[in-house]
């Protein structure tokens, strides 16, 4: 859970940095983003990392299902009057629910962009690269799609808020000072990722309103 989670968190940084190219002026962004996507699709090293990524998503999900099963089994009969929530944060107790939101989002996300790019028939830009940029921009002209993304990214943000430090705890970081450092860095990371990913759909929606 911890190792796959940390790898997925690391991927989020790379994915965000790549996608920030969408914020460039339209013509420049189109050519650069399409050639960037073309490069990613063609590079053998990137392909290998992509397979690790798919594997991590699957293992992380399977692990979550197993944890939920163990929880149900270990809890036995539930409390009739339960106020235990005061001792922990709501998002730390609801990582499974947040994870399900993220998973459903990923299915939509993969279908709309990854599948279309890999297996769909996309027109090309002037450089001859598949025009993923236009596909993205058109998608984010719809308000409901932007709202869907924002909800999913907020879920991701809370998932990270607990997940990043929790992963380090599971791996065994017990040093009191570095534990505090990771706690703070985990929050900074979660906030930065959330803001970074929310800016993109919002920016595209506002800029391409006709």
């Amino acid at each position: 859970m911890a190792i796959t989670g940390l790898f997925l968190s690391f991927f989020l940084i790379i994915h965000l940095l790549g996608n920030l190219q969408l914020l460039l002026p339209a013509e420049e962004a189109q050519l650069q983003y399409n050639s960037y996507s073309h490069f990613l699709g063609g590079n053998i090293l990137v392909k290998l990392v992509a397979y690790v990524l798919y594997l991590c998503i699957i293992l992380h999900s399977l692990d979550a299902i197993y944890l939920a099963y163990r929880r149900k089994k270990a809890n036995g009969v539930s409390y009739s009057y339960d106020r235990r929530g005061r001792a922990s944060t709501w998002y730390s107790r609801n990582m499974t629910a947040l994870g399900i939101i993220i998973f459903v989002f990923l299915v939509i996300h993969f279908k709309d962009f990854w599948y279309h790019y890999k297996f769909g028939d996309l027109p090309t830009d002037v450089n001859g690269n598949k025009d993923l940029y236009t596909l993205v921009v058109v998608a984010f002209e719809q308000l409901w799609y932007v709202i869907l993304y924002i909800i999913a990214i907020l879920a991701l943000g809370y998932h990270l808020l607990h997940g990043v430090f929790s992963a380090h705890r599971t791996i065994g970081l017990y040093h009191p000072m570095y534990n505090k450092v990771i706690r703070v860095l985990g929050v900074v990371f979660a906030v930065a990722i959330t803001i970074g990913y929310i800016i993109i759909p919002l920016f595209l929606y506002i800029n391409f309103q006709s």
Partner: peptide
């Protein structure tokens, strides 16, 4: 069960 670090 397993620990998920809620710290309760």
């Amino acid at each position: 069960g397993y620990c998920t670090n809620t710290e309760a």
